[in-house]
Design a protein around this nucleic acid. Structure first.
Lengths: 211, 211
DNA sequence: TATCCCCTCGCATCAAGATGTGATAGCGAC
DNA sequence: GTCGCTATCACATCTTGATGCGAGGGGATA
């Protein structure tokens, strides 16, 4: 198995050297570059085409451009790279921002060097490793989805709304529900009063937002 | 440390017995119940109030009600429980369905018993463990977000659309952009042709969807 | 029973949107 | 220069939507 080309972007000298010593000394890896900032790293990538890491360990808290902000630029220069975020923070915001930016793994800095090593191997095999507490936050992100209050609408009113939101006209809605056009109008009227809105546009926007 | 109360729902006798033997023999756990189906398990939870597991190992592929379908019912009877899905499948659909239903961990059945044990401990500590390939799929779910094509609209057309989507009428849009009402109409006409739609509702829905 | 809410329907009116036909003008491409 | 695209404006017509007023039937509840 060929060694995995690596890069590290970390400003803290203690952690950086610790990583460099541990990973650089492991024959499974080929540590190509160690940067102290995104700017530094981008510069290196631009000037030296030989730096093509498969995996990057990226600190999230960096002087200048943050790790998250840097991901797009890095991916632009080295599209295939997998990014592992290293961080002391576990705020949901940062986690999701990093994942959305293209990070594929997110580790707390408190984990052991062995765990980091394993995470690199996992990522390089096409997997992903998240610290347990971070994984939990990610998982919980999916749960609030089913939390949608249907508003104070009656069941019938909700049916009307569904039709309208799905693009049906009042007439088509009337046909579909087997009621008269005027009845649909009446329902809409009441719905608008209850929801305190006054146009189909707002109704659609409102319905789409909560889903 | 008190043993962690467990329950297992698994129809395959081999896997079930394997889990039962391994986990049941571990003093860290207190294996309260082993069910072969959701129906069986729900029945047990209803009739025996002493069955209050902290963690449930739940097969996703079960005869009768599937594991995913069963999660809401289980959570209803035992709200605080953490659910770990065990599965041979790694389809994104199933993963997200399970997470949305309230599962907090998702393991491939191919992992070792030790990994399952560790996952239980992790989950019970408030974390989450996902098999690497599954974690990767979860992570990738976040990435396609920034993929929004603004459509083949010209810049001017997009301005019109923005106004409309923000709730302005044609007249208000005309005033805001400093053009005549008829011009707005003309633009809308062209926009509808290009987008192949034919109502304001569709326009709004379409615009909101991609954001 | 009286009351309230929900669903149903009708009519009327005005505002807004959808659609067709046609015209003028600037700008870049061929 | 002509062609094509974009942006602008006008007029006409028809459909749709928003809103007010009124009304009857059914079910739940006090």
């Amino acid at each position: 198995m060929k060694p995995i080309p690596l890069a590290i972007v970390e400003d803290d000298p203690i952690i950086r050297e610790s990583l460099r010593t541990f990973l650089g000394g492991d024959p499974q890896f080929d540590l190509l570059y160690t940067a102290v900032s995104i700017e530094d790293f981008l510069q290196a990538l631009e000037t030296d085409a030989r730096i093509v890491p498969a995996v990057i360990l990226l600190d999230i808290q960096l002087p200048g451009m943050s790790g998250i902000e840097g991901i797009p630029s890095i991916k632009k220069l080295r599209p295939g790279v997998d990014v592992i975020m290293l961080t002391t923070f576990e705020e949901s915001d940062k986690i999701f921002a990093a994942l959305c930016a293209g990070a594929c793994s997110y580790l707390s800095k408190r984990v052991s060097l062995v765990t980091i090593r394993d995470a690199i191997l996992t990522v390089h095999r096409g997997g992903s490793y998240m610290s347990p507490s971070i994984a939990r936050k990610v998982v919980e992100h999916f749960i609030p989805a089913p939390k949608k209050d249907d508003g104070p609408l009656t069941q019938r009113q909700q049916e009307i709304v569904d039709c309208i939101v799905n693009g049906l006209s009042y007439k088509m809605t009337a046909d579909k529900l087997g009621i008269s056009l005027d009845t649909v109008r009446t329902h809409i009227k009441h719905i608008y009063q209850v929801l305190e809105i006054n146009s189909k546009g707002e109704l659609i926007r409102r319905s789409l937002d909560k889903k």
